[in-house]
Design a protein around this nucleic acid. Structure first.
Length: 900
RNA sequence: GGGCGACUAGCUCAGUUGGUUAGAGCGCUCCCCUCACACGGGAGAGGUCAAAGGUUCAAGUCCUUUGUCGCCCACCA
């Protein structure tokens, strides 16, 4: 029957209490005028993070861990939160809705606000693009009501105008990706490709004035309605005689020329290509080379237009069927073959993208990319992990001009005005009164907005007051690190680097840490636009935000993606509970010690932070020396790991220390010392226990901020102590490292484990104390055991322990041996001979194999001469130990087999 | 068509520059509601590191090939 659980850690009781506190007090306020080292960090803008999905919670988790870590190490930390972005996130919409009801979203509290956002997101469905259009139609929210902060708008205009004046932004008629559902142009990055099984239709185009046909192959037959030529390869003998002639375009009854162009691949299809300049990138270029007309046969929403003749009004895929049917009826369809190819889909709505010629604004990328490549090559920006560097280079070296105009509802309007009279364009920082070319007052602002990533690219400096030389800008630019998921390396990171370098002549950040994506159990990427996220609010309530954070951190090994499992979350929750209960143990004892003379001020003494553990009469107890040595090791590990963005190593190191060392061994070890309320040792033990625990809390704080903050406040603190987040992060103290203590303590652990092992094998009742014998040839080891005899008796549940140097015999008991010592429990009736023999034989086999392997390697002269001495010596030592173990096992096996 | 990553215990995953008996969490087996904690304690079992070659004194780790899965990039109609 399980005991009633009344002492479990309840995250919801403490986490909300501290939420406001740390945000306001501890972390996000940075003072540019303050002295000291700087750590500044950029977080993704809200259209990226959404903040609600676990996938992007990793951003916040890792950023917050880093931020807290730096803050505690005395850095003047700036964390640039993304609140002012061109994109309209669901959050922004909800903020707006609340504002219309006269509610300040901040007053709702974080949880309630997130719940509402989540709800709205689920109820409204679809993409925000479409949601916004609906809103625009049903209420008076106009684009202007979504006006972004004036500061950011000013920066965006400034940048746009400068780039335009430098000739890097231009307006052109060009072929772009068009989404017929979102009704906007898209950059290449905003499309996704999907391999689909399609067809290749072979169509006969009659050559005018002959009986010949020219056969073309196409995957999109409906575009033939916009054909204005047919191209063949200039060297192609099959068609050479036809170049210069015309074909009659079927269905449209239009004569179009046959041209020779090297773009044609003679091997593919029929070697003749229909040219549709308005609907295909290759054809567009080809059409320009040969002066062919562009005929756009579609409407914005993917229907055929008047230029499609009889097919006008049909939806594009319907038109495809009709075109094919009609060609077939006219006997012009030669054949249909299967053809699988990757088609481009709109990233947001998954509609098939239509390549289409249209007039858009573009940004020239080559001149911006070159310095950005160089900066990473020179190491001015470190990209972690390394392999992402190569991806970055590959993309940057093959970069193409960027379509920056979008026909969307919101965002930064393009600061360009079209003249109704002279049709010229005026680009300006401030709204002009008249056309700069002809002076006409009939001007209207371009209706397009900028790609949301355009303003995102300016984030690192637009948030710091650029173009003014503000104190913030001077102090915090470049930022220290950018943390984000690798999926927006090109969208965002690369563009920030380009824009940062172009406008400030400095890199925008010194390091880019690209973390994994969180995937669902099916391996799908968790993302808000796909709706595949788990609900972090629900999970947080179930397991606690600290558990969630710790779990994410402990799984965040760079390079691979994370599959979030409830098992791991539960494990992290259990860890939180473990800490909670360890703290309870301390609190229970605390009162007694206060009465026993230990003063709060003493406990909070800084001595232990600087030097060695507290000592009794000048001597540090072994267990104390050991735990502080382990603490020092863990501290070094955690600091080192965080410095290299190895969050999982840091988290796992803290976990191991806290649970495996501190709780499992140290607390158990010192318990009796604490029971004894009067006496020097009791006070010292308590002080050390407190000091180690307190240091561990600080070490753990970035990973479990709420829990550690709460517990830290319940521990005695110096007057005026405000928050653990403002306290000092443990730095590795060389004085604490005690190699001998670690080695000695480990030996005692081995002795205890060996004895427990024997007990378990005998299936002894844990309450039953038994007598045991200990034997070692080494006096040092016997002394060690002697000195901590009490602890061994208690932890191995022994009635007595006889220590000697005599060889132990196995008859009438069970023996455990290591190279250093033997332990024996005399309890004949409980010995399971069969199991014991099986165990020993297995052990013997293993040792035999190991000894053979090592002997062979050591006998190898090449090994001895080439391997480092450290390795050879280590192997020799181990071999000696193995031989002792083998002799002991063999000996015992012989006794058992004989004795029966 | 290019490029990248993964394949390690039943499951989910660690394992930085090659080096002494390959680790964790969950699950499993056995014993325990022992006065911080059953979201716990104690003790175990469990892996020829996807396959085959190679380099090396030494390979989970480096190279080559193969297989399976996943991802990114790509204007072949």
């Amino acid at each position: 029957m399980a005991r009633e659980i009344a002492k479990a850690y309840e995250p919801q009781q403490i986490e909300p209490r501290w939420a406001e506190y740390w945000v306001a007090e501890a972390l996000f306020r940075a003072d540019a005028a303050a002295p000291g080292p700087v750590f500044s960090i950029v977080i993704p803008p809200p259209n990226v993070t959404g903040s609600l999905h676990i996938g992007h919670m990793l951003d916040h988790t890792e950023i917050d861990i880093l931020t807290r870590w730096h803050r505690m190490r005395g850095f003047n930390t700036l964390y640039l939160p993304g609140t002012d972005h061109a994109g309209i996130s669901t959050q922004r919409v909800v903020v707006r809705q609340l504002a219309e009801q006269g509610v300040d979203y901040r007053a709702l509290g974080r949880e309630e606000f997130e719940r509402r956002v989540w709800k709205w997101k689920e109820e409204s469905g679809g993409t925000i693009t479409r949601q916004m259009r609906q809103i625009g139609e049903t209420c008076d929210w106009s684009r202007e009501k979504f006006t972004l902060s004036p500061e950011l708008s000013r920066v965006v205009r400034e940048v746009f105008v400068r780039l335009y004046e430098e000739g890097l932004i231009y307006r052109a008629h060009y072929l772009v990706n068009w989404c017929p559902s979102c009704l906007t142009a898209l950059s290449d990055l905003e499309t996704v490709h999907e391999e689909r099984q399609g067809h290749l239709w072979h169509i006969r185009y009659p050559v005018v004035g002959t009986n010949e046909y020219l056969m073309v192959a196409t995957t999109r037959p409906e575009t033939m309605l916009g054909d204005t030529g047919v191209a063949v390869h200039p060297e192609d003998a099959r068609y050479k005689h036809l170049v210069g002639k015309n074909v009659r375009l079927p269905l449209m009854n239009r004569e179009i020329p046959i041209v020779a162009d090297a773009m044609v691949d003679r091997e593919f299809g029929t070697g003749a290509v229909k040219v549709t300049p308005a609907h295909d990138p290759n054809d567009f270029e080809c059409g320009r080379r040969h002066g062919l007309a562009e005929i756009d046969v579609m409407t914005d929403d993917g229907h055929m237009n008047a230029a499609a003749g009889a097919y006008a009004g049909l939806e594009r895929f319907e038109a495809r069927q009709r075109v094919v049917a009609d060609l077939k009826a006219q006997g012009l369809l030669e054949k249909i073959t299967d053809h699988s190819h990757a088609i481009a889909l709109c990233e947001r709505c998954k509609t098939v993208v239509e390549p289409r010629a249209s007039t858009q604004w573009f940004c020239k990328m080559k001149p911006l990319a070159e310095p950005a490549i160089a900066a990473v090559e020179r190491g001015e920006i470190r990209i972690v992990p390394d392999n992402r560097r190569e991806e970055y280079f590959h993309w940057m070296r093959n970069i193409r001009d960027w379509v920056i105009s979008r026909q969307l509802w919101w965002g930064h309007r393009i600061p360009a005005w079209h003249c109704g009279d002279c049709k010229e364009v005026t680009v300006a920082r401030e709204t002009p009164a008249k056309c700069s070319k002809c002076g006409s007052a009939k001007i209207a602002q371009d209706s397009d907005v900028l790609d949301t990533w355009f303003s995102s690219a300016l984030w690192p400096f637009s948030t710091l007051g650029w173009p003014e030389e503000t104190l913030d800008f001077k102090k915090y630019y470049p930022t220290s690190v950018l943390v984000t998921a690798y999926d927006i390396l090109f969208f965002w990171v690369a563009r920030m680097i380009m824009m940062g370098l172009h406008f400030t002549d400095q890199v925008p950040f010194r390091a880019v840490y690209l973390h994994s994506l969180v995937r669902t159990a099916d391996g799908e990427k968790m993302s808000k636009s796909k709706g595949t996220g788990l609900d972090p609010v629900a999970l947080n309530q179930q397991y606690g935000t600290d558990a969630m954070r710790f779990c994410l951190a402990s799984m965040a090994a760079p390079g691979t993606d994370i599959v979030l499992s409830e098992d791991r979350l539960a494990s992290a929750r259990n860890f939180a509970n473990k800490i909670w209960n360890a703290a309870r143990f301390l609190f229970v004892n605390f009162d007694r010690f206060e009465q026993g003379g230990a003063r709060i001020e003493e406990l909070a003494s800084p001595d232990v932070r600087l030097g060695a553990p507290y000592a009794t009469g000048g001597a540090v107890a072994l267990a104390d020396a050991w735990i502080f040595s382990r603490l020092a090791g863990t501290t070094e590990l955690v600091n080192e790991a965080l410095a290299n963005y190895r969050f999982h190593e840091a988290a796992q190191g803290v976990y191991q220390f806290f649970w495996g060392d501190f709780c499992d061994w140290y607390i158990e070890w010192v318990k009796p010392d604490l029971q004894n309320a009067d006496g020097d040792r009791a006070v010292v033990a308590w002080k050390n226990l407190f000091a180690a625990f307190e240091a561990a809390l600080r070490l753990l704080h970035p990973f479990m901020p709420f829990l550690t903050e709460e517990l830290w406040h319940q521990l005695p603190q110096r007057a005026g102590a405000k928050s653990i987040a403002l306290d000092q992060y443990p730095e590795a103290l060389p004085k604490w490292v005690d190699v001998a203590a670690e080695k000695h303590f480990e030996l005692l652990q081995e002795v205890i484990v060996a004895l427990r092992n024997v007990r378990a094998e005998m299936k002894l009742d844990p309450r039953k104390k038994i007598a045991a014998e200990f034997s070692s040839a080494a006096g040092v080891i016997r002394d060690l055991v002697e000195r901590d005899r009490e602890a061994i008796l208690r932890l191995a549940i022994l009635s007595e322990l006889n220590i000697s140097s005599e060889k132990l015999v196995s008859s009438g008991g069970t023996l455990r041996s290591t190279a250093q010592f033997d332990v024996r429990v005399a309890f004949a009736e409980a010995v399971d001979m069969v199991a014991e023999l099986a165990r020993l034989r297995k052990e013997k086999d293993r040792l035999e194999r190991d000894i053979e392997d090592k002997t062979k390697r050591l006998a190898d002269e090449t090994f001895r001469s080439r391997a480092p001495e450290r390795i050879v010596r280590g192997l020799e030592t181990t071999l000696v130990e193995r031989r002792i173990e083998y002799a002991k096992v063999n000996d015992r096996l012989g006794q058992l087999e004989q004795g029966g």
